[in-house]
Design a binder for these strands. Structure first.
Lengths: 237, 237
DNA sequence: TATTCGCACTTGTAAATACAAGTAAAAAAT
DNA sequence: ATTTTTTACTTGTATTTACAAGTGCGAATA
């Protein structure tokens, strides 16, 4: 089964998104006009517009009739509380990742309080645990459970300093479209105390999340512990 | 200034959305095919597809190539983490409100870490503090700061068991369009211990929010303390 | 000088057309 | 009867064309 090539509008979306993410286009800049993008990439306007529609949807740009497409910058907009993964929520600070439990396949019974389908249950799940540090301070500990269907070579990929969301999007055409989350404040248990190097009774934020994707019936789950002492979570809504 | 008529694709979106919301199309049903919708509404496929794109985006439907558009049903409520105020986030449980500090006008210097404009600063702000109980358990304590411009009779209104968001929308045509929030876990301080009837070191969730409205330049601010022991915050994103 | 007007640009909406690709059921072959 | 192939649908991608409408700037006008 050969991988189908990504459609043109999607390729353009990825290109422009990258240019915004790496700062080539900064907040407030105008993107090239639709006609210029057409000429530059040998596409027609509806195709270009579809790519821009996606960027609007992800809050990378806004458009003004008669004016142009205005870069909004990284959608801090979609901080960890609204949509994106951790990596894009951090911004330019140094984010390092330690894999505590390497991707491995195991069975599951439940997923942090969320119901899972019988099919997912029968196939088992990919299990990852990561500790993430911002500027060398441990801030996130996350456990991720992904249904084990058809993600070839997934367990052998490197996740160090890479965004899980980005891997899913680029290699498997899976985009997180939204989801559900519970959020609560708890005391640090022993394992968390150790990872975060904090005392007992230290208040910790916990998120239990279900991520829903563009692939029908495909959801995955994560539980995130956050030490908000030095870095609080920021999000737009 | 006459109101411009809504575009065709938006009208179709509204129609189909209404049909899903009132149950004419139920979860699992197939929408009429794109060609049938074209014929029925005298539109062409690109226009129909644009309406369906919007429904996909809002998660009312998903589409399957070769199959059709499958109704997903109503996207579930948006909890406190995404957009709405507390009242609509609770659902059917009993929510009671105690006004701890009645609406009063005072000066402000800052608003929970957010920058405020010079104009807002010069006019002072309306200050409210409320304790909210779900099924008689104290769960939220919130402090709200609203710039004091032109909200006639605001301080004399009753806020018992009423939604602040609703008052702003109905009486002042102010709608919250989005905003920014910081979220962190803290230990209960003395005042919170008392209100929530919890011990020292009890983990508490704190949200610092800036609410942006449809009125240009008008934002207001709130700080919310949550006891997530019995009720965790649930939201979609 | 200050204002108005027009032009050249931008994005927004909409149609008509073509072909690719996935799905499911009918039709044909085994 | 079972399997395979065909066929008639569905949505997905992409082009071409046309006009509407908002923006900003420079030239013409008062």
């Amino acid at each position: 089964m050969a991988l189908k090539e990504a459609p043109q509008y999607r390729k353009l979306y990825e290109k422009l998104r990258k240019l915004i993410e790496n700062g080539t286009y900064a907040r407030g800049d105008l993107l090239p006009s639709e006609n210029e993008l057409c000429a530059a990439h040998h596409l027609t306007r509806p195709t270009v517009r579809k790519a821009l529609d996606m960027l609007v949807n992800d809050r990378f740009i806004i458009r003004h009739q008669g004016k142009g497409s205005i870069v909004q910058g990284q959608p801090k907009g979609i901080g960890i509380l609204s949509l994106s993964g951790t990596t894009s929520a951090i911004g330019q600070d140094k984010l390092t990742t330690h894999i505590i439990v390497k991707p491995n396949i195991r069975s599951w019974e439940q997923a942090f309080g969320y119901e899972i389908s019988e099919q997912d249950k029968s196939l088992g799940c990919i299990h990852i645990e990561r500790l993430r540090l911002i500027n060398d301070i441990p801030v996130f500990y996350d456990i991720t459970l992904i249904p084990n269907l058809n993600l070839t070579r997934f367990t052998s990929r490197s996740f160090e300093n890479k965004s899980l969301f980005e891997i899913l999007r680029k290699h498997y055409q899976i985009q997180v479209k939204g989801g559900e989350q519970k959020i609560l404040a708890i005391k640090a248990d022993e394992r968390i105390q150790e990872h975060f190097r904090v005392k007992r009774n230290h208040p910790i934020l916990r998120l239990d999340r279900k991520m829903e994707t563009n692939r029908a019936g495909f959801s995955f789950y994560s539980q995130i512990y956050c030490n908000t002492m030095d870095y609080s979570l920021i999000g737009r809504f």
